[in-house]
Computed example of a mutant assay.
Amino acid sequence: MPATALTARALLLDMDGTLVNSDAVVERCWRRWALRNGLDPEEALKVVHGRQGYATMAVLLPERPMEQNYADNKVMLAEETADTDGVVPIGGAPAFMDAIAALPHALVTSADLALATARMGAAGLRMPDLRVTAESVGASKPDPEGFLKGAAALGFAPEDCVVFEDSEAGIAAGRAAGMRVLGVGPRAGAHSPDAHVADLTQLRVEAAADGAITLHVQAR
């Protein structure tokens, strides 16, 4: 049975699918890309979540030179940054971000800074002071680099951090970093996170004077 409470000293937050619902934009852009490259859009959409674009392209077109994936990724990022139609906060995200404002936390996202800024802004969410974006890492999730960098920047050991994630790649990255994972949304439930919520309205944050943070999962 998944845990109904997790205790941490720092929180590492994915963005897409975790704080921001950007599925409409992601699906529009990736459907176009899949069709341009002779791929089945439905099959492509099964692997796009959680990774940087170039890494997704490498999974879908394993024989293609990485230079072409990097070039396509730049185009994809520009398209996604310009398209914020339908970008909304995940349920409970505004109140959750308010609740953790004074607690150690960082954004760890596969988006670059421009895309992260556009989507957090479109969703009306506060951008954390500390963020690990695509420019900050050499490897995409499921590699743990981003979460390890986030923990180090906050000054906490991996075992003191809880990762918030929605995707298979993100959950794998959190686990590889030696952190516990709170899964958010329907995609996360299939990958056995340490605790799981349908959205952030199911979460209550309790902060103790000694710096301990308890994340209580509320039953519906």
Rank of each mutant, 00 (worst) to 15 (best):
Q68H: 09
A44L: 04
T214I: 10
L60E: 00
A106K: 04
K149D: 07
A99C: 12
K46H: 09
A101N: 02
A172T: 05
Q202V: 01
M127T: 10
G138I: 00
L103V: 08
I90C: 12
G155E: 03
Q52M: 15
D199A: 12
V137N: 10
R51Y: 01
V48F: 02
P144L: 10
H216L: 15
H105A: 14
V88E: 10
A212K: 10
A3R: 09
A78V: 04
Y70R: 15
M57S: 11
V108T: 10
E42M: 05
T214H: 11
D14G: 13
P142C: 14
W30I: 02
D14T: 10
N73A: 15
R126F: 05
G50P: 05
L39Q: 04
G189I: 08
L107M: 11
P104N: 12
A101L: 09
V88Q: 07
G91T: 07
S110F: 00
R126A: 15
T109A: 13
P62L: 11
K141V: 09
M97K: 09
R187S: 14
A114F: 00
A55W: 00
G189W: 00
D85G: 15
V59D: 09
G86H: 03
M15Y: 02
T109W: 01
G185A: 11
V59F: 03
T133R: 07
G170R: 01
A5V: 09
P193N: 07
T56Y: 04
T18P: 07
A139Q: 11
D210K: 11
H191Y: 14
N37K: 03
S110I: 02
A219K: 07
G38R: 00
L103G: 11
E80I: 10
M120G: 09
A71P: 07
A116I: 04
V162Y: 04
R9F: 09
R36H: 05
G38E: 00
L115T: 08
K74W: 00
G174V: 08
W33T: 01
L11F: 05
N69K: 04
A3F: 04
P193E: 02
M15N: 07
V132K: 05
D160S: 15
D23L: 14
L35S: 05
F164E: 01
G183W: 00
K74H: 10
